[in-house]
């Protein structure tokens, strides 16, 4: 799957969509595929301040568990209730309905540490 052009990516396989000062974060289709059937996501609390690339939660599949890192720093403003109710949404719609949380961005400089779609696709095809 070719990753959407309008998003930025982290090497930890998270994506981020910037919309003014709000950034939406999810995991990539590549990541959901590698994890297998996702059964539960543990997301940061709304109101919490998080820093770029820090561990902010956990993604569980049936028999594995992975840390969730945030590709962008700031204050968590919203978490996706649909994913909390149905974690399978992340498998089905990783780039859209399966978003995880939104952040009020603290620094535009975070973007410098992220990849564009073509760079991310090179990263994942190399592996």
């Amino acid at each position: 799957m070719v990753s959407p052009q309008e998003l930025l990516y982290s090497k930890d396989h998270e994506w981020v969509r910037y919309d003014g000062e709000i950034a939406t974060v999810g995991i990539t289709d590549y990541a959901q595929h590698a994890l297998g059937d996702i059964v539960f996501v543990e997301l940061p609390r709304v109101g919490k301040t998080i820093t770029q690339f820090s561990n902010v939660g956990v993604i569980e599949s049936v028999k594995s568990v992975s840390d969730l890192f945030t590709p962008v720093g700031g204050e968590v403003t919203e978490i996706n209730p649909a994913v909390e109710a149905d974690a399978g949404l992340v498998n089905r719609e990783a780039f859209t309905e399966g978003w995880l949380f939104k952040v009020k961005v603290s620094s535009e400089a975070d973007k410098a540490g992220l990849l564009d779609a073509s760079a991310y696709d090179v990263l994942t095809s190399a592996g």
Binding site: V39, F40, V58, E60, S61, V62, K63, S64, V65, D67
Partner: peptide
């Protein structure tokens, strides 16, 4: 819900 358990989470 085995992903909560020690044999999968190890130090987590």
């Amino acid at each position: 819900l085995q992903a909560r358990e020690q044999h999968i989470r190890r130090e987590r």
